[in-house]
């Protein structure tokens, strides 16, 4: 097990390296220049030139990449060309916000989706099944920015309610943080729910057909005890797989929800970075998200062995 983890970790090195090259290349292919953006349309050419020098953008690309990589290897993500602030602390603090949003969003999605998925599987092809499936799919059929906008406008119009404008984390003030995150988390959760629901349903359908469940059911055991006792554990691998993928996906895909609700998370940090051509920010941010993504996947694989001890690596 330990050896497996170490091996997996080593295999991450080329991936991370590849991502660094990819993000650097794409970013520099995108037209636009941070100095001009900062100075806007009224800027003089001199002003732009001065600022470009200050930002270190006058160096050749390869040199810029090597400098960035060199710093990275020493744990230095560099500074934002825009604000001059170091990037890593900003990434970490924003990651903490995105993480809270993501986890809460995922919890909403799962709390809703897993039970419904189970019901749907147990009563397969019944009207309950059909309704539940349709309902879940509605969630992935409407763009989440439309859902989020509707929630914001509706709540403010009919209840005069709006989330607290200062974003606080759960470890500072849980009650306040709950109010901050509830809407964006629901908006995210709706999208997740559909995927998890489908996965739960099909995993359960498969398990329920297995002999030992049939035996248990035939023995006249209470059906729900059978389901909870045997089927859940047996169905959890695909559910964990998709859940893990979703968490990883959400960390990078929370951009839209963060943008809509002005949540200063990692997604928005990177998005702003793209808009402002703040190269080190985007490079560092994407690299970080990718790293988390692959680590979450590794964690999922490790969880497999815990769920099903028969799996050995």
């Amino acid at each position: 097990m330990g050896r497996y983890i170490v091996k997996r970790l080593i295999s991450l090195v080329p991936i991370i390296f590849g991502i660094s090259v990819l993000v650097f290349t794409i970013l520099h292919l995108v037209p636009g220049d941070p100095a001009s953006i900062m100075l806007g349309t009224s800027a003089t050419p001199e002003a732009i030139k001065v600022l470009r020098q200050e930002m270190g953008l006058d160096l050749p690309l390869v040199q810029q990449y090597l400098q960035w990589m060199g710093g990275l290897l020493q744990g230095d993500f560099g500074v934002s060309v825009h604000t001059g602030e170091p990037i890593l602390p900003e990434i970490l603090s924003r990651f903490s916000i995105t993480l809270q949003l993501t986890v809460l969003g995922a919890l909403f999605g799962w709390l809703f989706a897993i039970p419904l998925g189970i019901i749907s599987a147990v009563r397969v092809h019944s009207s309950v099944d059909v309704v539940v499936r349709l309902f879940a799919m509605l969630g992935i059929s409407v763009p989440n920015f439309a859902i989020g906008t509707l929630l914001l406008l509706g709540l403010s119009l009919y209840f005069g309610w709006f989330p607290p404008i200062d974003v606080v984390s759960f470890w500072e003030d849980p009650a306040e943080a709950w109010q901050v995150f509830v809407l964006p988390a629901i908006t995210m959760g709706i999208v997740l729910a559909a995927g998890v629901m489908r996965m739960t349903r099909s995993a359960f359908l498969e398990t329920l057909e297995k002999d030992f469940i049939r035996t248990a059911r035939a023995k006249g055991n209470n059906q729900w005890i059978v389901i909870v006792g045997h089927a859940l554990r047996n169905s959890s691998i695909p559910i964990v797989t998709i859940a893990g993928m979703q968490i990883g996906y959400l960390l990078g895909g929370s951009v839209i929800v963060e943008q809509l609700f002005s949540i200063p998370g990692l997604g928005q940090y990177i998005l702003d970075g793209i808009y402002q051509r703040d190269y080190p920010v985007v490079q560092g941010g994407v690299l970080f998200v990718a790293l988390v993504f692959v680590l979450v996947n590794l964690l999922v694989d490790v969880i497999y062995t815990w769920i099903d001890p028969r799996i050995k690596y």
Partner: peptide
């Protein structure tokens, strides 16, 4: 490995960067 690299790249941001480029 190349696919892993593409896969780990946040989807919307990758699409956005490609369109911008």
């Amino acid at each position: 490995r190349c696919m892993d690299i593409l896969f780990a790249f946040p989807e919307i941001l990758l699409a956005l960067a490609i369109v911008a480029a």
